[in-house]
């Protein structure tokens, strides 16, 4: 079944790097979307849900932590998996965002192997 991916990060460069790393990991997505912050992501998800969201933590307008809570309120995204991608790696943050409904956490800097390891179980 075709899978879809959304990358949410306020840095356009980082969105391109994540997209490139996902490609290098060997994972295939039929449809990919991008958003520059949580509010833009929510707007796009309202019209067209995705299977996987890769989401930064620190962003303007709406933080990634807030986006996780909002996505979990959407019936249309009940099956969407959310993986946070951030330089922030405190236990408090990871525990909090996982409790709010995130499905995984990838630290920056990252490798294609890390994406493969974290995303494969979520899309199989």
């Amino acid at each position: 079944m075709a899978k879809s991916l959304m990358i949410v990060d306020d840095s356009a460069t980082m969105r391109k790097i994540i997209m490139r790393t996902v490609r290098m990991s060997g994972l295939k997505f039929e449809r990919t979307e991008e958003a520059g912050n949580g509010a833009e992501a929510l707007q796009k998800l309202g019209g067209s849900p995705v299977d996987i969201i890769l989401c930064d933590v620190n962003m303007p307008e709406m933080m990634g932590t807030e986006l996780v809570k909002k996505v979990r309120e959407l019936d249309s995204c009940a099956n969407t998996k959310i993986v946070m991608v951030s330089t922030e790696s405190s236990k408090e943050l990871i525990d909090g965002v996982m409790a709010d409904g995130a499905n995984g956490f990838i630290n920056k800097p990252f490798t294609p192997e890390k994406f493969q390891e974290k995303l494969s179980p979520l899309i199989d």
């Binding site: 840095s11 460069t13 980082m14 790097i17 951030s86 330089t87 790696s89 630290n107 920056k108 800097p109």
Partner: peptide
């Protein structure tokens, strides 16, 4: 900016 952010994270 991203390199700065990631080095600080590291």
């Amino acid at each position: 900016g991203e390199v700065t952010n990631m080095v600080m994270g590291s």
